[in-house]
Amino acid sequence: MASDRTNGDDYFAPIRRLLVGLLVLAMFGLFLLWRIDSPRVERFRAAVIDQVVPSFDWAMAPVTGLVNMLADFQSYQRIHEQNRDLRRELQQMRAWREAALQLEQENAKLLDLNNVRLDPNLTYITGVVMADSGSPFRQSVLLNVGARDGIIDGWPTMDGIGLVGRISGVGQNTSRVILLTDTSSRIPVMIQPSGQKAILAGDNTVYPPIDFLDNADVVRPGDRVVSSGDGGLFPGDLLIGQVVLGTDGRLRVRLSADYERLEFLRVLRAPQVEVITDPGTLIVPTGPALSLLPPAPDATAVEATDG
């Protein structure tokens, strides 16, 4: 009896198979196009997201709020304990505040004496987080500000305290922030008291590791990590976090920004954004040609040991 069905389908089967084949080919074609000409397809992606996600927003904001409220409700059970902790913390903070005020006054006086003009270009635009990446493999959030508000690719994004990520992908009304924890995030950083420069490389964990550190001996857990401003990528001296020693023995960074609740983010108007104009070329020294060969006696010694 099962053959009845296949008989009925005979007219459509070849056409359907052809359609499946064409569709799969088209999808692979799109993937290859993305691989070859990524910026164009990514712009298309930004435009699609720009159309789709804001239309969800009327429902998204209340649901997110509700779920967060439920999560908060659980923490009310420990309210007494929390209150005591907060009071103690507040006491400590008052002392710090006093110190900070004094330092601020001193700093202002010194700046005035030296006639320093602060950079007025570092203003910011605040956006609300609309959605996250939706996949456990990508760490990014979508903001409700975009090209309409003058956002440009590559600008740094902070919450109230520390760096959160950088803009990557701008639509008309939305823009995407690649978080520091994403596997594709690489930020040049400086580690504060020692002045060591390194790269903060996201690897999809809560504490991103520090890469390309010149001298790890002078870096201790607890050191401050700030952006270094190398390569014209970011303005310097944006707070990122503190150095911690990971369980795997690598130096990692505990981020200052509160990744648990990203709600409002500041996009800094960075004055200088690196614009890539030419295709990648080999970087060669421009001065007189350097000899890459070791001196003659060494070469013979190497040959001797090889033989």
Binding site: L23, V24, W34, R35, R45, S133, G134, R138, R176
Partner: peptide, 25 residues
Amino acid sequence: PMLLVAAVFLATDLLFHRPPGLWTA
């Protein structure tokens, strides 16, 4: 239907920042 599967997964490819097209195919 096949076209519905293609539409849904291509849309999520774009929304979730996956390489577009590969997972759909």
